[in-house]
Design a protein around this nucleic acid. Structure first.
Lengths: 342, 342
DNA sequence: TTGAAAGCGCTAACAA
DNA sequence: TTGTTAGCGCTTTCAA
């Protein structure tokens, strides 16, 4: 009933607490018969060491903090699974925190992880200026891995996706398909993915010799409503676009909804390519052409980076850049206009 | 740099550790000037109490374990947010665990929660026979709240949805719209939602005087492939259905994919109604008619139940049953056949 | 190869 | 109103 402690095991097995501890932690210099006797005691008593006590002793835990904006975003879902599966295989436990991109929440969670003596944290930072909050945490001895987004003036292990290239490929794809008025719904510009994706767009337009019409560039905030509103703006204009590149999944969903409401045919009237794939992107109306980010691998890599940092606290900082890839379905009109795929 | 402890604060403020502790925990009988002096010391030193130590002392924590099958399922996403938001407001911290419906994983996580001295766990159990794993945990003093599914012979606080009624309404909706050959893709039958939803179907068919064609009843396992495969089976048969009720979101996605592959028009050739709504259900092709479960509220209620149990450990067990509601979009064909909605 | 003892940071009697 | 002290469960010297 009451909790079984190491003391109970010790007296049951007729040895000292120290010996039980040694058995538990696989120390050398324990007689075989003693070892088995202790094991039996542990089993019959159903003993499990108190993590609180261990943590107090060791001043660290096997907890891995994972701080993300929002679990309802499909990208972060696969990312979380990548982190969890990898951590689980290493006997680490993941504590998931949603910041909703609110810096204060992020601060609270970072503090929590410190207080919990987490082994380290993997963070998708809320803001490029987050250095002020992150640096003290690292100074206090907790390894930090940044994921998906970067923070200004903050050298740190990072896993990200080549946003510029992804957006470049998507935009070029639209150009090659012959669209003339390509609009872009960009994301929050002071988030790395936001401006990198816009830059990728611009690069492609320039490289392919397409003049940039600034009235076709809208800056959103990565949320559904934003995609919805900006699409309305775009389509209500005197010269609406014939194709739209949307910078993330949520805004793409908003764009889709707006276009349906306006009874605009996709891709006949307007073609659509989104950044971020979703498991059900092929079931949307129409099946969505999208730049797929390797969310699961991003999670995996982040954990690997953390383990490396834990093993070698003084190793130099490392940035891992993963590739995205374009998945051509129907919203871009490739099936109508032929395959000029990149 | 090094961790600031209560001792540091005490000596900085020129008082004893006990006094610092009293200030920290808002005890009465602390002189005002002492209180402020300690507060200042805390602030300037940037002190945060060690949770490990507190936990060791108190033999319990403010951690709430949330054990679900899979975060990639939209239902569990809103559920998680409901739990997190509610717990957060109560200063509790949520540790999320995905079992993938694998009993062994569930066992590991339950053990982890015990070792972490969680205040309680909210569990979506993997199996109706899970009593053997769950009961010992509760016996050991940890409150358990069951969510979404029930466990045989295990009296416990539970939050669930009225699956029978939800399926009933969905099926009746199809009957009222005039469909004659209504198929059902059911879920795992030894999971409560699985057989309850099938029962709801049967009830509706019987009540409305529709003969049951057993060849139109398929038992799946709640996963995408299952919905996909069974839809293929259904449509390849000599007498395919003119409507399908699918028992959860993932299988509905599979069904949708299969129907598209077969170039079956929805709802003209086959109507479709799914259990579980999804944020983007309206963007699917066609917009999906679905039974919406109140995932967020389920999460909220589960936390409330846990708090109640924590406050009154001996209160009698309580079962909360939430209603689902039918959201009529286009996949059921209501817009073509007129509004015979329930 | 084993045991005794100290101490991790905190809180709660008990005393003053 | 405050300080002293013991102890939560564990690991790790140090000594035997």
């Amino acid at each position: 009933m009451a909790n079984v402690t190491i003391k109970d095991v010790a007296s049951y097995a007729g040895v000292s607490k120290a010996t039980v501890s040694r058995v538990l932690n696989n120390h050398a210099y324990v007689a075989d018969d003693v070892r088995t006797r202790v094991q039996q005691a542990v089993d019959t008593l159903g003993y499990h060491p108190s993590r609180a006590a261990r943590r107090l002793r060791a001043n660290s835990s096997d907890i891995l903090g994972l701080i993300i904006p929002d679990i309802e975003n499909p990208l972060f879902q696969s990312l979380v699974r990548g982190v969890e599966d990898t951590a689980y295989a290493q006997q680490m436990n993941v504590v998931l925190c949603n910041t909703d991109d609110i810096p204060d929440k992020q601060k609270v969670y970072l503090r929590l992880m410190q207080a919990e003596q987490a082994a380290g944290v993997i963070v998708v930072p809320t803001h490029p200026d987050d250095r002020a909050v992150l640096e003290p945490v690292r100074e206090a001895g907790m390894p930090i891995i940044l994921l998906d987004r970067e923070v200004a003036n903050f050298e740190v292990d990072t896993v990200k996706v080549d946003n510029v290239h992804g957006a470049y490929v998507a935009t070029r794809h639209l150009i090659l398909l012959g669209y003339k008025r390509i609009a872009v719904i960009a994301g929050t510009q002071n988030l790395t993915p936001g401006h990198e994706r816009l830059r990728g767009c611009y690069h492609a337009l320039k490289d392919m010799g397409v003049a940039i019409d600034e009235s076709l560039v809208k800056i959103g905030n990565f949320k559904i409503e934003s995609g919805y509103d900006l699409t309305h703006e775009l389509m209500k204009a005197a010269h609406p676009p014939d194709a739209i590149f949307v910078s993330n999944n949520l805004m793409t969903l908003g764009a889709l909804r707006a276009l349906h409401e306006l009874s605009v045919r996709i891709p006949e009237d307007v073609a659509l390519v989104g950044f971020d794939d979703m498991p059900w992107a092929g079931d949307l109306n129409p099946p969505l052409t999208a730049v797929a980010q390797p969310g699961y691998e991003m999670g995996q890599q982040a954990v690997q980076l953390l383990l490396r940092r834990l093993a070698q606290p003084d190793a130099s900082f490392c940035k891992i850049m993963l590739q995205s890839r374009l998945i051509v379905r129907q919203s871009c009109g490739a099936h109508l206009r032929g395959h000029n795929s990149p």
